[in-house]
Design a binder for these strands. Structure first.
Lengths: 381, 381
DNA sequence: ACCCTTGCCGAAACCGGTTTCGGAATCGAT
DNA sequence: ATCGATTCCGAAACCGGTTTCGGCAAGGGT
């Protein structure tokens, strides 16, 4: 009664038009049910000492009255805010780029589906990252974190482990694969398998001399993808000396110089696989400059599925990663972990999808012919 | 005393190593100062009924003990959570793309600089957007919202106005410009001025027949940029019939067909200005297909500064927008508004920066020659 | 008939803050 | 010396939830 009066007072205070939309609190609900708010709270949270019948009744009434508990009011007691944390590393040379939109869409939809939210922050360096994470944890801005762009040995893992805060990795880390002793939760794309398939694809087209351009050594996926390349080469019984592999090519310019190096070999490759699309774009500078044609003289295959690839000439054949799906999966995994499930069981793998475009095809030139033309282009310039 | 005991108990309960890192609360601080927590609270918040001397003392001690109030504990009473809200519209055909990373970096750094956070959600449609906004407000997930990609008549404005929630627009809206009666806060780039400069740039190169390809009519910037184009054309005393302008070209394919239409005119343009880079990329399909060369026969200029443009052949001359700066500015404006400043005074304009690349230059063909070659390309195919 | 469980809920403390209210000093003025 | 106005802080209620504790009533066993 008295509570209803209060509500009426509040809404009538100005005119009938501007109603402050009095939120329905747990006390309103309790009054309506003739219960105490403690009982209502326990009913809503499924405590076993509340009869099933009462739980039903409470939930029904809550639904009817549109009661939604305030998470930050709960948080003050429980310490949990039902928020996922994501800290962008804005120093990164290779941009997250268009990944991010899809990724965020995935994370937020999955999160909100569970009644969770996403809070985003950014860090400028590794040490700043540590500070930011610690601050967010101390101020209880998030119950757990999604770590994207996992490094081989990732300092964030250490920070969050020390803080005993749940986290989930987008990408396995060095120890995440074999050692079950380190119970990290992760979601990843099978980049190694993808690279293996790329080799087989090129081999079946007739290529026998296939180069590989790897990304930054600090990222774990770089190692995985290289392993996949080597596996594929071994399966096809193809020779692969160390000179057929380049490393640390993330940027377009780095991809270009790696490409130049490979094509300047005594026996240059007729096809090159790039660990990341970004570096594959460098081939579009390097290969024509050497008097060669992409997709004919030299086939190239990328990985990621960035939109730029579709507008290159010829459009880049690549493996597209569904970042939206990844975001959804990661959010779900993290929420489950925050609810108490064992991180070791919270792992998932997915695959990248081949996008066949115009940058690869059967070889039209032999390595010897390529070498000759490269030499010619060199001397003429 | 008793409180200190409690703290020690907590940290010693297991061993000395695993300290639960007991947060310092306002009560700890009050005890240490010999004040009540009410007084400490008022001191921290600068209430005038606390002497300056005491305020100093409290703040110093808070600093010393590392006291950081829990925003969600404050929120339960104040209703304000010190969080900015951002709802991504994931239905949008034209992706936010790489904008987003920079933009988020800007927003989060500016926000965290003020002790605020950013919480991100997503919506799939206009009606979903309304639901999401209302839910976020009802659940007090954010004190205000940043609305990017402002439409000419934006339903989000209505929603948030009704809810009496602060918001700031990235981009002016239809009424934001003149009518001081609608006190929206916004930040924008002077797209109209930019387009005016683009016309002058092309005119000074020798172009007299300049086409324009506009983006989606629902966005306000489309109208502004078109006005700028028209202003520039008028200033240069150049004719501009309605056939020299295309509209609703956001996607690459739409840009391509708009380009084809312009070049099929009896007197085709020797230069085309695109309202968004994305549609300018369509020119890279259309123009070579008509037997013409970009940057020579037909000059093109874009707007946005998306990375794809740098990899097109020839690289796209465009105007780059600093989205990071925009994010920072918007966050600051919104925070100030949440603190009570008048939205009408919280406005800011910035400019886009010209990136001179290879897609424009002095005309080498006359409109008549272009028309002839287009006709030839048409019949041959 | 009695005691001991067990099931179920009320009462009240609690979480970490904010805000209202009132009263004890201090002060200047009469 | 008295008085009213200020200054400044303590006490306590409050925000919207959660959690502990204890007690009442029903049920089962002897």
């Amino acid at each position: 009664m008295s509570r209803e009066d209060k509500k009426l007072d509040a809404s009538d205070q100005i005119t009938g038009t501007r109603q402050p939309k009095a939120r329905v609190t747990i006390s309103h609900l309790a009054d309506a049910l003739g219960l105490t708010k403690g009982t209502v709270s326990r009913a809503m949270n499924g405590y076993p000492d509340i009869s099933d019948q009462t739980q039903q009744r409470v939930r029904r009434q809550a639904e009817k009255m549109g009661y939604r508990p305030l998470t930050h009011a709960q948080a003050i007691r429980t310490g949990r805010v039902r928020a996922l944390g994501l800290v962008l590393q804005i120093d990164e040379h290779d941009a997250h780029g268009p990944f991010l939109t899809d990724f965020l869409a995935g994370v937020t939809t999955a999160a909100s589906h569970e009644g969770w939210t996403l809070s985003v922050a950014s860090a400028q360096s590794d040490s700043d990252m540590r500070d930011v994470l610690e601050r967010l944890v101390a101020e209880q801005k998030a119950d757990g974190f999604i770590l994207q762009r996992t490094r081989r040995e990732d300092p964030r893992i250490r920070t969050l482990s020390e803080l005993a805060v749940p986290f989930v990795l987008y990408g396995r880390t060095r120890f995440g694969v074999d050692e079950a002793t380190l119970p990290y939760s992760w979601y990843d794309i099978t980049g190694e398998e993808t690279m293996r398939l790329a080799v087989h694809r090129l081999f079946s087209m007739g290529h026998t001399r296939i180069g590989f351009v790897a990304g930054g050594e600090e990222y774990n996926y770089t190692h995985l993808r290289r392993e996949g390349y080597l596996t594929g080469m071994a399966e096809c019984r193809l020779d692969v000396g160390p000179d057929l592999m380049c490393r640390n090519a993330r940027l377009v310019t780095e991809g270009a110089s790696a490409t130049r190096r490979l094509l300047s070999l005594p026996v240059p490759p007729t096809a090159i696989i790039y660990s990341v699309d970004q570096s594959a774009l460098g081939a579009y500078e390097a290969i024509p400059a050497l008097g060669l044609e992409i997709g004919r003289d030299v086939s190239i295959i990328g990985y990621d599925g960035i939109p730029e690839g579709a507008f290159a000439q010829p459009p880049l054949t690549t493996f597209r990663v569904d970042n939206r799906k990844a975001g959804e999966a990661l959010a779900r995994l993290l929420i489950r972990q925050c609810r108490g499930e064992d991180p070791a069981t919270l792992r998932d793998l997915s695959t990248a999808r081949l996008i066949e475009r115009g940058s690869d095809g059967p070889p039209v030139s032999t390595p010897q012919e390529i070498a000759r033309r490269v030499a010619a282009a060199r001397t003429s310039s």
